[in-house]
Design a protein around this nucleic acid. Sequence first.
DNA 1: AATGAATGAGCATTCATTCAT
DNA 2: GATGAATGAATGCTCATTCAT
Lengths: 202, 202, 202, 202
Amino acid sequence: MAERTSSADLRRLILDTTRHLLVEKGYADLSMRKIAKAIGYSATSIYLHFENKDALFHALIEEGMERLLAELKQAEAAHPGDPVARLEALCQAYVHFGLENPEYYEIMLLLHPAHMARYPADKFRRARRNLDVIEAALIDGVNQGVMQATNTRVSTSVIWAALHGAVSLLNAKRVDIRIAHKDLIAETVRHTLRGCCPSLER
Amino acid sequence: MAERTSSADLRRLILDTTRHLLVEKGYADLSMRKIAKAIGYSATSIYLHFENKDALFHALIEEGMERLLAELKQAEAAHPGDPVARLEALCQAYVHFGLENPEYYEIMLLLHPAHMARYPADKFRRARRNLDVIEAALIDGVNQGVMQATNTRVSTSVIWAALHGAVSLLNAKRVDIRIAHKDLIAETVRHTLRGCCPSLER
Amino acid sequence: MAERTSSADLRRLILDTTRHLLVEKGYADLSMRKIAKAIGYSATSIYLHFENKDALFHALIEEGMERLLAELKQAEAAHPGDPVARLEALCQAYVHFGLENPEYYEIMLLLHPAHMARYPADKFRRARRNLDVIEAALIDGVNQGVMQATNTRVSTSVIWAALHGAVSLLNAKRVDIRIAHKDLIAETVRHTLRGCCPSLER
Amino acid sequence: MAERTSSADLRRLILDTTRHLLVEKGYADLSMRKIAKAIGYSATSIYLHFENKDALFHALIEEGMERLLAELKQAEAAHPGDPVARLEALCQAYVHFGLENPEYYEIMLLLHPAHMARYPADKFRRARRNLDVIEAALIDGVNQGVMQATNTRVSTSVIWAALHGAVSLLNAKRVDIRIAHKDLIAETVRHTLRGCCPSLER
DNA sequence: AATGAATGAGCATTCATTCAT
DNA sequence: GATGAATGAATGCTCATTCAT
């Protein structure tokens, strides 16, 4: 089984398998042993690519952050001029990423602070870049007079919180099963925009 | 060692200590032994008051549900006539509860679905009753023409998601430290109300 | 629940309940707690009547020995003259006792030597009285010329072993299910008698 | 600590040590820890060779079954023609195996039914094959007119029970210490043969 | 006579990690 | 690059027993 995978491939395989197991079992029920078994290598092999369990998860977090950033950037690229359309696209992209990548979302945002304490602070700061993309749209909107915000930093976090709330409740299967996911998402985005753009009539 | 604590007191002590440890260490890192050590009793003693670990957490979940419901009911009682003021009070109460009782909030709402399977579904169904209080205010508001909602069930979940997002990000210390908690909360509530009450000028 | 039972009654209740649990769960899965729960008293109460777990079981063993002896004596009483008929009755009585009282049989005869080491030696000697009854029949038979044995002590143990083998295999459900218990017993007794009484034509 | 033992050796060491402890302490008092301590390895190491405690005992049962069958086959091979001599050899071999391998005998035949449920039924069905060897000799004897049996299946179990009774009482040290083991065995075998072979004059 | 409270020791099992090869 | 062998520490839980009341 260990025949064809090159070193880089194995690293990838470990990361991907860990992600998949994360969805099935959750962070707490994931062990190096189980990952090793799932990839068909010995547990020791994982240590050749990651210093320890923390390092493996940190790599996954970092990767998730980058992927989310990429998706956000791609989303806003489609709406260069219109800040409102851009903000809407960013909201949609954020929620879409969270629902499509529950594993990344889990380790990135649902890990208990006690675990995050071991996550290097400098990488943490990078996480904030994702919010900067949203804030930039907000600032543009305010400057163009189509949005309203006393403090764009605060408003950004409010928007983020609303999106995060929807994503995490949906992923955790806490939302009333009679509500269609897309309805909740659509309404969440609408609420969010209405909160920023007073003139909006949707 | 356990000289003065009566039986009922010890049960309370276990519950309270577990709650506190929950904030410090998180659900995944909590063991019967750690709880026992924290209260200065043997691990065996816990089993005198709770059949097993699940039963202990279970009791905590139930307690949390009841307390939240009590706070919501108390909050709405202060605004019998005005649905908007009532909804605002409910939002404030929800967030307040979540921030003041991060431990209850954690077991009630941040448990991974994989773990939730171990807790009786009917207990969680009861959680939805808390949302009913919010939905009732929304329905009243719509009926009185001061709120707007295509589907109150969906709107309720949207409001809940926004509040939950704010609470969980704040509790997880994910929010930019330069943002004051009360600013984020105030703005979240304002956004939420603006999303439902089109005529609102705040 | 503890209302009507007098002290002696409770002792009796403990002994009987322990016997019944013994059949269901086996010696290894029996705990003081489980006995207490089954009788509806606290575990501590058992210690008022028995010094410890060993003492409880020793009492049960002793009781079993006495009951078996009583049954053997009653069996031989019906055949005062004929040693062969007496021996046959004794064999039947022994097997009958073992199959009807699997709990007594288990603690009396199937306990691991390591456990029996704690059983007081003098009471152990009393156990041998049961065999004396059989040996007496054998000696009578030899004296009357209807039985044959080089050494009655050895022959007694051989008879006992054959009966014990049948009882313990039946109780342990090791015997081919297609064989009716009574057939095995009848044939075992026949074999046993044939082994002692050369003239027998059955 | 475990300097020279290879992997296969350690597996063997675990099996052998477990067997020995089985005689000393009995099945009920055997723990993975105790086995580990006895071999000078950590408890965890045992799990490197056996999935769990059941699997370990399981392997021992299987091994015991095979060894007994081998001894029975070897015993009968020495007496191809004469069914009586063959049956005698089989009885001797059975008793010999039981006395020489009290540990195998204990897990194979003295396990409480409540515990047996944990071991695969088919393994125990295999145990019956050992009896088939005895029954075959009986059938041959009956066909050649030197033995007598109404039902060979029942007679086989009767013989087995007599042998098992002797083995288990001796192993459990229940037999009067004044009786030499070999006397009891010799007499048991003689009884057994006399029970089947009416013409026998021994 | 009866009990609730308490515990230390023990159980099978899993874990992340190290080390020699 | 990869592994098998090994382990100390931890997990939830049960046990027989003691003690004050």
